[in-house]
Design a protein around this nucleic acid. Structure first.
Lengths: 244, 244
DNA sequence: GCAAAAGTGTTAAGCTTACACCCATGA
DNA sequence: TCATGGGTGTAAGCTTAACACTTTTGC
């Protein structure tokens, strides 16, 4: 028994990663939760996450958990806070590094993983009761997302390469809990120089956004990430161009 | 020997906190470093920090280290990133939660603590070689400070209650690596409604900023934090008023 | 007296906001 | 045919940026 144990001269906390996965479906922002299949909090909904391995960084750990649970590999993933309340886990001292991930919901095939009985998307303002301090984590994730949106063009991470302006606007409106004038919004986005109209035929080949059920066909746009990164690193700008 | 050890069924990383302490002296921003008195990296400069105790959150741990090293208790202190490279510490797997602290340099009495042979302020662009990955930590701390300044009024944390407009401007200019027109800067600050001119007699009683060596006496200002917090929580505003 | 810090206004340009009607499409 | 989503322009108000000379003070 003792030979299977890991011993240290001083006590060490356990470390986990937890992931708040935001997905956009064209009209609402959702969060992916798993139903816990093991104690503690068996049967409760919780954030996907798990224990850090000794040969991986927290980023690698979070990515691994994500892959194990969903098969998705290329997503925006960023740590935003460490939750370290001494009693946040009833088993032992566990400190968690919380990440937020942004995905196109349609890219995402939800599958229940090892320790999860079930996995499901929830609208971000209609969440079930959650295990551990996961409500706190989500609350801060939303605030963090709001702040990041003001200084990074992360809305595009929630969209396909090609999208309708109204979808982009929707994301801004949901996250910032406000509304914008359609014309003003589109004008400012295009004026940034990084959001371009897609030629209609190009657009098709991207098999772009899901079609809305009714209404006139929309112009499609794309975000020129390459140009953005180049401009960013050349420090030619002072003001963030997406500060709605 | 074995009885003094702490054992776990699965391996746990060690966890430390490290603190990037920014201090403003009226004209430059400085970072507080300690000279390590113990191995590894004995004799190198490093960020103040240390191992997390099991009965404290990372915030409490960072505060404790800060207190132990300097005696300062009320400072702005905020975690900004977890550094978790597998080999960042040669001894064992150590993951560190990095904090940034903002202090008025004049409030700060530097004393060398237990594990530190020496402690000293360095101008933030003239740092010595550093232990571990502490250069990376500082690099990110500066970037993080820059981003936070765009969405939180943290510049005031570097100043006395009462300050000259030119000092405030200096902070913005250093952090954002640019210059502003004095008149435009002051006008915009005052227009925010949270930066008020102090009556000259009041100002005296605060024994405010250090006097500059030459030049005309300056009007003193203060930041109305109470009003700011109230406005913030009542969500009466969309745009951050200090976005220079 | 001279160097350094700070006081003081105006104008032009640009950006933001508010606002309403028509068209295309699918149910 | 009607409900929904999308296309389109302009004017008023506000914010920003650029700009120079004078006063006070300590050395």
């Amino acid at each position: 028994m003792m030979s299977e144990m890991y011993s240290y001269k001083y006590p060490h906390p356990a470390v986990t990663t937890d992931c708040v996965i935001f997905g956009f479906d064209g009209s609402t922002i959702n969060i992916l939760l798993v139903e816990r299949g093991i104690e503690p909090y068996r049967g409760s909904w919780a954030l996907p996450g798990g224990f850090l391995k000794m040969d991986e960084t927290v980023e690698e750990g979070a990515l691994r958990e994500l892959r194990e649970e969903t098969g998705v590999s290329k997503v925006f993933l960023e740590q935003f806070h460490v939750f370290s309340d001494v009693k946040r886990d009833p088993r032992e001292r566990v400190l968690t590094v919380a990440f937020l991930a942004l995905v196109r919901k349609s890219d995402y095939h939800v599958i229940a993983g090892d320790d999860a009985a079930n996995a499901q998307w929830f609208e971000w303002d209609e969440l079930p009761p959650l295990a551990f301090d996961h409500s706190d984590i989500i609350k801060l994730a939303k605030k963090s997302l709001q702040q990041k949106l003001r200084i990074q063009p992360i809305a595009f991470k929630l969209l396909n390469n090609v999208f309708r302006m109204s979808e982009l606007q929707r994301i801004y409106e949901i996250i910032h809990e406000t509304t914008y004038d359609r014309r003003n919004f589109a004008r400012k986005m295009v004026a940034s120089g990084f959001v371009n109209e897609e030629a209609a035929d190009n657009a098709m080949s991207f098999s772009a956004a899901e079609k809305p059920t009714r209404g006139r066909a929309a112009t499609l746009f794309s975000f020129d990430e390459e140009k953005f990164e180049k401009t960013l690193s050349s420090q030619e700008w002072r003001k963030f161009p997406f500060d709605f």
